[in-house]
Design a binder for these strands. Structure first.
Lengths: 108, 108
DNA sequence: CTCCTTGCTACAATTAACGTAGCATAACGC
DNA sequence: GCGTTATGCTACGTTAATTGTAGCAAGGAG
């Protein structure tokens, strides 16, 4: 099997290959990231209620993920406080929403 | 302590609620997991070609993810060697396949 | 036999996540 | 004013996960 040239394959987590899907898969593949998007699907949540929704995950990671998700344009912090999905974030949520039905059928 | 930390690599975080979606979001939210499913969408890949496809990620994590994905019933190791998606794994892939199109529009 | 590829593992080092506590700010009731 | 409460967010030591390199045993082909 021909070993492909690993010329530019020094990337840490494959998030900079130029293909947007790789960057997205990498971003979503970080701990609590998918869960955060999931929990924000409804009404805005404060940082503490979001933490409660995420099984009391440590605020360190939550804050890191929220910053990343805000930089990515998926989450925003409203004027009156509370995090919510941006239109783009809601669109992203819609794309993997079918996972819910799949998970029900999966039932590990 | 709110939870008892078992040192089992098979433990699925977020499954305390009993909701399958939480277990699934947690499983998919581990490093290289989404990427592996993505790279296995086509023809079967050997462990080494899969590693090449995943930017030479360390075989330690790859092997751990592959074991988890096999336990979950999403990936299988064929008789003649080479990893591929199970029917269920392909079904899972189909559910977040639209992420590709979304990522193109996203283009951070 | 040697050479090569397969799936997979050992090991130390690095990084990320956890858990608890706390800060600064602001909005209340008193 | 004061004390209380809640917000977003951070510090810091501990623990778990990931990384990178090397290597193993088994199998096939020459």
């Amino acid at each position: 099997m021909a070993k492909q040239a690993t010329s530019s394959a020094r990337r840490v987590r494959g998030s900079r290959t130029g293909r947007p899907i790789m960057a997205l898969l990498d971003l979503l593949g970080r701990r609590w990231c998918l869960r955060i998007l999931w929990e924000l699907r409804g009404d805005p949540l404060t940082s503490r209620s979001l933490r409660a929704a995420c099984d009391e995950a440590s605020p360190t990671v939550l804050q890191a993920r929220l910053t990343e998700l805000r930089d990515a344009g998926f989450v925003e912090l409203g004027e009156a406080g509370g995090y919510s999905l941006t239109p783009q974030g809601r669109e992203l949520y819609e794309t993997f929403m079918p996972l819910s039905r799949f998970a029900e059928r999966w039932r590990k």
